[in-house]
Amino acid sequence: MASALTFAAHGEPEDVLQLQQDDASGAAPLGPKQVRLQLIAAPINPSDINTVQGKYPLKPLLPGVPGHEGVMRVEAAGAEVSTLRPGDRVVPLLPAVGTWRSSGVFEAEGWHAVPEGLPDDAAATLCINPPTAVCMLEHFVELKAGDVVVQNGATSAVGQV
């Protein structure tokens, strides 16, 4: 049985999130370009909380499932899916896909396989903070060999990356 945290209205998570059970999602046939995914891990980011509150710039259709990041395992792939195979661990390429669910059916083009050697916790948090850190270092200043970067307040995952 699949389950998901859902919200039908914006508000404080403890007031609006509900755990929903779905008996049919595991049996639904896949479209030719879809994959059935099983959750491995999904973090809770401030952006997730802000999405539920309605304060984040991206506003998924309601009712919705929160979760911008996570790592899932491909359980099955549609007939036309050539980039992902059952057993692959995948991360979302798009924001607000709703990773706070035990499983789901998604369009394969919205997911990317990650290397087997990458730990699950690193894969689950791969899509928001690491690209932000890379963007800051590559697009805001031209760094050269020997340059030093000083960062103040590196308590977030961006700072750690």
Results as ranks from 00 to 15, higher is better:
Lys55Thr: 09
Val97Trp: 05
Phe140Ser: 00
Gln151Tyr: 09
Cys127Leu: 08
Met72Lys: 07
Val90Asn: 04
Leu17Gln: 09
Val65Phe: 08
Arg85Ala: 11
Ala42Cys: 10
Glu138Gln: 14
Glu75Ala: 14
Glu75Lys: 10
Ile128Lys: 10
Gly146Ser: 11
Ala8Cys: 10
Leu37Ile: 09
Val141Met: 00
Glu138Asp: 10
Leu94Ala: 13
Pro63Trp: 02
Glu14Lys: 14
Ala157Ser: 13
Ile40Gln: 13
Gly70Arg: 10
Lys33Leu: 07
Arg101Asn: 10
Gln20Gly: 02
Leu30Met: 01
Gly104Met: 07
Ala42Trp: 05
Ala2Gln: 07
Ala157Asn: 14
Met136Asn: 04
Asn50Met: 11
Glu138Thr: 15
Pro13Ser: 01
His112Phe: 08
Trp111Gly: 01
Thr83Lys: 11
Lys55Trp: 06
Pro57Thr: 00
Met136Leu: 15
Val16Gly: 10
Thr51Phe: 08
Asn152Met: 11
Glu142Gly: 06
Pro32Ile: 05
Gln53Ser: 10
Ser25His: 06
Val74Pro: 02
Gln18Tyr: 01
Ala157Met: 11
Ser25Asn: 05
Gln53Asp: 04
Arg36Pro: 02
Leu137Asp: 00
Arg73Pro: 00
Phe140Ile: 00
Ala133Tyr: 02
Pro86Gln: 02
Val90Asp: 03
Gln53Trp: 07
Arg36Lys: 13
Pro32Tyr: 02
Gly117Val: 04
Glu14Leu: 14
Gly70Val: 05
Ser156Glu: 08
Val16Lys: 08
Ile128Phe: 09
Val141Ile: 05
Tyr56Arg: 03
Leu94Trp: 07
Lys55Arg: 15
Ala27Leu: 08
Leu61Asp: 13
Thr155Arg: 14
Val134Leu: 11
Pro13Cys: 01
Val148Leu: 11
Gln38Arg: 15
Leu37Ala: 04
Pro130Glu: 02
